[in-house]
């Protein structure tokens, strides 16, 4: 479901978990394993992309989450959720701070937790088909994989509020206008463009490249912790279970439209 290989100084991480790279325990474990290998390697770049036609990632694995909590919340389930979020935050923080230049190649759906994963990257390449959204408020929660502080780090707060408080999706060209992505390429050209970026960054002196990233990209640690606290509090509401039930059981042809 997640494969990675190192070639010519570039790690290529391919996500292929149908239907659209939903992030649950399996994806989390795979990312943890990858990050461990990447941290120990002297590669210059990482490219994260999806091998699925459906898109980059539709976000958290809501079906698994619903099956865990459909009977209601109790202390054990709250503990499990807290542990899961801590692991996600930990691996996303490590991904964010990798010594390599991390490039995300994005097409079609890049929603919720998938959007949060993309925000860990240093450089985002979007195919024209890409759409970005944070639909979490539909579920009665907020993004909880570190998405809000990372979005705040990269773009203006007015747009952060618009995206969060409306849950609307924006296309690649709009994402470029607001500074969320820095390369927009035709359909099917994302990976090639990401490889070109990786090859370019790989020409530079490794120490200069690492120092530059370290200097430019700071981890918003306090805001990340605060986001996790707010999300955990919101999760404990029945609103969330009811919203998850509606989402999981819906056979509506348009569930992605908020």
């Amino acid at each position: 479901m997640v494969e990675w290989m190192l070639q010519n100084g570039i790690w290529e991480v391919k996500m292929s978990a149908p239907p659209c790279n939903e992030i649950g325990l399996e994806m989390l474990s795979a990312l943890e394993s990858f990050v461990g290998e990447a941290e120990a390697s002297d590669a210059h770049s990482v490219i994260i992309y999806s091998g699925l036609e459906s898109g980059f990632s539709a976000g958290a694995d809501l079906k698994s989450l619903y099956s865990e909590v459909s009977g209601g919340w109790d202390e054990a389930k709250r503990g499990q959720l807290s542990d899961f979020l801590s692991r996600i935050h930990s691996v996303f923080n490590r991904l964010d701070m990798l010594p390599q230049t991390v490039i995300c190649s994005i097409h079609r759906v890049c929603f919720g937790g998938g959007f949060e994963l993309a925000l860990c990257g240093d450089i985002r390449v979007a195919e024209k088909t890409a759409r970005f959204a944070f639909p979490e408020l539909r579920l009665g929660i907020i993004p909880c994989f570190g998405g809000i502080p990372r979005l705040e780090r990269d773009i203006g707060n007015a747009m952060v509020r618009d995206l969060l408080l409306t849950g609307r999706s924006i296309r690649a060209t709009k994402a470029a206008e607001i500074g969320l992505v820095t390369h927009v390429v035709p359909r099917g050209e994302g990976l090639a463009a990401a490889r070109a970026v990786a090859n370019q960054t790989g020409k530079f002196d490794p120490e200069a490249r690492r120092s530059c990233k370290q200097f430019l990209k700071l981890l918003p640690t306090e805001r990340l912790e605060e986001e996790k606290r707010v999300a955990l509090r919101l999760f404990q509401s029945d609103v969330v279970i009811n919203a998850l039930k509606k989402f999981v059981e819906s056979d509506d042809v348009r569930p992605y439209l908020p």
Partner: peptide, 26 residues
């Protein structure tokens, strides 16, 4: 089509007509 293809159509329309259509208006 389903929702995911509707999003593709939305992107095509926004590109073609050079507009933004918030998907909640759909």
């Amino acid at each position: 089509i389903k929702s995911i293809q509707a999003l593709d159509l939305l992107t095509d329309l926004e590109d073609e007509f050079d507009i933004e259509i918030p998907d909640y208006e759909m």
